[in-house]
């Protein structure tokens, strides 16, 4: 499926590896279960490592290992299942994860903006999606009432000239 990052289509350099498949060379994505079982083999590999979390798996299960990952994939089995939005915020805020967070599964155009707000920065999209649609969807809202995980200044901050939360964190 096509992949969008930084407002453009990009090539997916990661290979998804099934739990019972041999580990190929290069960047791979494994399930949380496989990661937990084979942590000591996976972490020392010198290639980018990704983990796939299903919608009922909290990233807090990764603990300090979170920083070993170049990519964390959040699955949205149905567009109505909104747990991934909280997982993304935990990753960005609680666990301080700086790598790529990718949304996969049943994701609607009208959800990309909210996903980006909670810290998801790459999107698997349906075949046939046009990049103009993505850009238009991301530009549908100029102001945001609440601080989230995208570093954007909230209306609260703009009204009272407070710096954005991320800037705050950086200054500390």
């Amino acid at each position: 499926m096509p992949l969008i990052k930084d407002n453009a289509f990009v090539e997916d350099t990661f290979a998804r590896v099934a739990d019972d498949a041999a580990l190929p060379e290069g960047a791979i994505i494994v399930s949380l279960k496989r990661f937990q079982a084979e942590r000591d083999v996976l972490v020392p590999r010198n290639t980018p490592l990704g983990v796939r979390l299903s919608s009922d798996q909290s990233p807090e299960a990764l603990g300090a290992d979170v920083h070993h990952f170049a990519l964390i994939e959040l699955e949205f089995p149905k567009f109505k299942d909104g747990r991934g939005y909280s997982w993304a915020r935990l990753l960005r805020q609680r666990l301080g994860y700086k790598g790529e967070v990718r949304a996969t599964g049943d994701v609607l155009r009208d959800q990309w903006l909210f996903m980006s707000r909670v810290g998801i920065d790459s999107f698997e999209v349906r075949a046939g999606t046009r990049i103009e649609d993505f850009r238009a969807a991301m530009a549908e809202q100029t102001f945001f009432y609440q601080p989230a995980s995208d570093g954007v200044r909230s209306v609260l901050d703009l009204r009272h000239s407070r710096p954005a939360p991320f800037a705050l964190a950086a200054a500390q």
Partner: peptide, 14 residues
């Protein structure tokens, strides 16, 4: 009202 409007994390609750 303002905080909850278009809250990105809480728009697809159970």
């Amino acid at each position: 009202r303002q905080w909850s409007t278009f809250h990105p994390e809480f728009s697809y609750l159970p």
